[in-house]
């Protein structure tokens, strides 16, 4: 598609600048979207440190792959979260290969749950602990990343109706939980 003919979004312009080595553009993108990337990575990995690593890797990947981005006049966040998803999946694969559970292992308190409790992240804690993995991803992608349900469906490769149902169900659960807590 001819770039001259396409109306570029601000983020697309930044990605094109990143492709030309503009570090300021990279900084802007990082500060603007690190929360969405981190939240999505967290919903997939359930580990704060690994989510942070994936977040950092996502923006390094953005720096290296910006030239391959094809502007379409749409927000590039789903494309960026696609990178996050691939990196998180790769991380899950490598960790599962290198980590084995000892036979005398007893499940301690969830460190993320503990961390979120200490940080007083009430809603996020409820999301992480009470929702299924897909529900977490859908809620975080919608609430934090601001993705539309259609974009979430494409990113997670789920039917739109499934995304809508899961989102509604998750929201009801959260309201119920938070109603009791608040």
């Amino acid at each position: 598609m001819d770039e001259a003919m396409t109306h570029l979004t601000p983020d697309e312009e930044r990605i094109l600048k990143i492709a030309n080595g503009d570090r300021d553009a990279l900084s802007t993108m990082y500060l603007q979207h690190k929360g969405a990337v981190f939240g999505f990575a967290l919903s997939m990995l359930h580990d704060r440190e690994r989510a942070e690593d994936v977040m950092q890797e996502t923006f390094i990947q953005l720096w290296n792959s910006a030239a391959s981005y094809i502007p379409r006049g749409k927000e590039p966040l789903p494309w960026l979260l696609g990178i996050t998803k691939n990196l998180a999946l790769r991380r899950l694969r490598t960790d599962s290969l290198s980590f084995s559970i000892p036979e005398d292992y007893t499940d301690p308190a969830d460190p993320l749950d503990h961390y979120l409790a200490v940080e007083n992240k009430l809603i996020l804690r409820a999301v992480v602990t009470k929702l299924s993995e897909e529900e977490q991803q859908i809620v975080l992608l919608h609430a934090v990343s601001g993705l539309k349900h259609r974009e979430i469906a494409e990113l997670l490769e789920l039917p739109l109706s499934t995304v809508l149902n899961k989102y509604r169900r998750a929201l009801q659960k959260l309201k119920k939980l938070l109603g009791e807590s608040l």
């Binding site: 570090r23 929360g35 939240g39 950092q56 390094i60 720096w63 996020l124 934090v144």
Partner: peptide
């Protein structure tokens, strides 16, 4: 509120990122 919580939880490791991106992109 969820967005605020996640944003506040996401660390700012920009310097680290910029250091990793010292070579020009492809």
């Amino acid at each position: 509120r969820l967005r605020e919580e996640v944003e506040s939880l996401a660390p700012n490791r920009l310097e680290e990122l910029l250091a990793a991106c010292d070579t020009p992109p492809a």
